[in-house]
Amino acid sequence: MAAAIETEGLSKDFAVGFWRPRPYRALDRLTLNVAAGEVFGFLGPNGAGKSTALKLLMQLLYPTSGTARILGRPVGDVAVRQRIGFLAENPYYYDYLTAEELLAYFARLFGYRGADVTTRVSRVLDEVGIGKERRLRLRRFSKGMIQRVGLAQALLNDPEVVFLDEPMSGLDPLGRRHVRDLILGLRARGCTVFFSSHILSDAETLCSRVGVLVQGRLVASGPLSEILAFELKGWELVVAGVGAALSPELAQLARSVTPLSDGHVMLHLAPDAEPDRLLGELTRRGAHIVSLNPVRETLEDYFVQVVASTAARDARGVGA
């Protein structure tokens, strides 16, 4: 599979301080390879350097060192922008243009002419769910609506690679659902999607691969299934109608017991608790099984653990 995005040792220093500027490393030797057709989730806490990396890929910033290529071409190549789409974080466009005019403007910059412009513009506006508001000037748009306009402009040229910086931010639950479906649609079309987020549930449902960036460094990357070992951490069992049936002897089998409403009770079981035996026992005593779920590690658990260990390592590094 050809690489859609490659970076090697990509670093960016910013000067901080006015009188005696000293370099502050926002991105530290990022080496990354995203294959064509992948949906890559670029994860990390706020300020980790995700936007910096994206701006380097868009050549809005020039790297301090390292290289970046998109579709096999250096990022400075204007021609490559013909084949990509980009949504900035908290995008802002022109107050005095309407959504339609803005997109027509961008469509012309992509080289489309005449009727092609109008059909493309109305198609992408439909795709992101902007209806008759498309004739309003953008200054009257809410943050969520602007976000949709931003998505629309990123899709205008049927891009081969789409870069989305925090695409879900500012959207209501319906909007998020919409964006999720859009990204899935892009994946189905064979488009490479590279998106940054600090919201992990999005990544979990969408990504084939993720990278985790902490304090400018890529601390982990790989397929989700690899990153999360899918280790069984235990069971959650909810039963109804137990009442007095739950003898202390049975309760001993569970790690903890939480009473829920309507006489439901949740039992947390150890991974080796053999739930079958317990289930049989409970049914025999007239209890009604509501649900039984395995508990596995989530991306969030993983994320918290990685961030914490990086911070700890840094603290040690400073101490030594």
Partner: peptide, 14 residues
């Protein structure tokens, strides 16, 4: 300052 330049300069525009 308002970063609309990000949208524009990522189009095929030098």
């Amino acid at each position: 300052e308002r970063k609309s330049v990000h949208g524009l300069l990522t189009k095929p525009v030098t």
